[in-house]
Design a protein around this nucleic acid. Structure first.
Lengths: 215, 215
DNA sequence: TATATACGATACTATTGAGTTCCGGATCTA
DNA sequence: TAGATCCGGAACTCAATAGTATCGTATATA
């Protein structure tokens, strides 16, 4: 650290000889970090836990990330892979149909895992802005963007008024789901989500409240 | 701990002679704990910080609470003093008037402090149910109860439909405020709150959206 | 005034965990 | 095949902190 270092310090080393770096380990370690994060939270998480979960040595972790903080930021930032493919966003012709179609066991399970990660990150959000931005971009913004698109399409087809406060209402589901999980610690089931759509979200955009059909 | 102890162990000692315990220190220490909690979060908070903030010795803290966890739980639980006096709940005659009247610099400042405490507690909520319940009862439930009463009164006077999902909608403001602070890290100002009332809450209970009057 | 006790301050112990270093062995490249 | 480099594992250092013990002092009660 203090000694004279003529080699590139921050750049990636590209050795001419010997074994290459195993990039498989990167994703194993990042996945392990997310698992431990969801289970124990940022402060409860140790590098030893992550390493042993990934069947890796501690040195292998520190060869890739300079600190625990950087590891967590990259793990969170790299999380958005897979989801958020706008291509298969529901398009049923009605706003209610679209929102109901978003309720799938697959996506609810995934959302639950993400909320556990968010809970583990929560205490750091106010202390580390970079981490907070990464968490927001990876966990809540994708879902909010989907809702925003569904609402905008409803305006475009004339189903709801163009005066609606799309910007706020697109955060409504994410907000209520996060609140119910993190603060109320109640389960998010289909009944809650349908009730949220029919009794709050649709009325808020001017669509009459339905008579509580569960499907 | 392991030795034979014939005195009452859990009961309060009432010495016949000497100096009495200074109950002023209790509230000083609890207040200091809340301050440190808001500033550094549960995991970042140390007993030394709390003690020195309260100008107390560490021993004085541990003479009253067996552990850091118990201190925090009591500090949070004892927080609800002062607020939540239903007597001076607004009663303007309209639901919108009541909700707008709830927006006061005094209460917003207090809510901000409580949200900072909630943020500091966040990572513990999923790990310690007792603490989670205390935080819920002291921080969010008082506000939710107020909104619930305002909504119920609006039903009673026939201003809004009795079919409204009061139970969910009474959590709407608390939910959106917590989300905006903890996750989005944006400020809660009067404009946001008025917009939330006019563009989401009132439409959700069937009242037509107003034309954005800031007062 | 005498005494028992609470007080602030500080030193102490024990534990935990971040980050480093080193080892023998595995593996890829020249 | 040979050597450079990565690997998992484990031992290590160092700093922080929960909780305990002690000391001299302040203070309320008898």
């Amino acid at each position: 650290m203090t000694q004279l270092d003529l080699t590139e310090d921050t750049a990636e080393k590209t050795p001419k000889l010997g074994r290459k770096r195993d990039h498989t380990r990167d994703v194993d370690i990042l996945d392990a970090a997310l698992e431990v994060l969801a289970e124990t939270g940022y402060d409860g998480m140790t590098i030893d836990m992550v390493a042993s979960r990934a069947k890796a040595g501690k040195g292998t972790v520190y060869r890739r990330w300079a600190s625990k903080g950087e590891l967590v930021i990259e793990a969170v930032a790299c999380m958005k892979k897979g989801d958020f493919d706008l291509s298969r966003l529901p398009n049923t012709g009605t706003l209610r149909g679209d929102f109901i179609a978003m309720i799938k066991p697959r996506s609810m399970e995934e959302a639950d895992k993400k909320l556990k990660i968010m809970a583990g990150l929560a205490s750091m959000l106010s202390r580390d802005p970079e981490l907070a931005d990464a968490a927001n971009a990876a966990i809540v913004e994708p879902r909010v963007s989907m809702d925003r698109i569904l609402l905008r399409r409803a305006i475009d087809r004339g189903e709801i008024s163009a005066d609606c406060d799309i910007e706020t209402i697109s955060h409504l589901t994410a907000s209520m789901v996060a609140y119910r999980t993190l603060i109320q610690r109640k389960v998010i089931d289909r009944e809650f989500l349908v009730s949220l759509i029919d009794n709050v979200l649709l009325p808020a955009v001017g669509l009459a409240r339905a008579t509580h059909p569960l499907m």
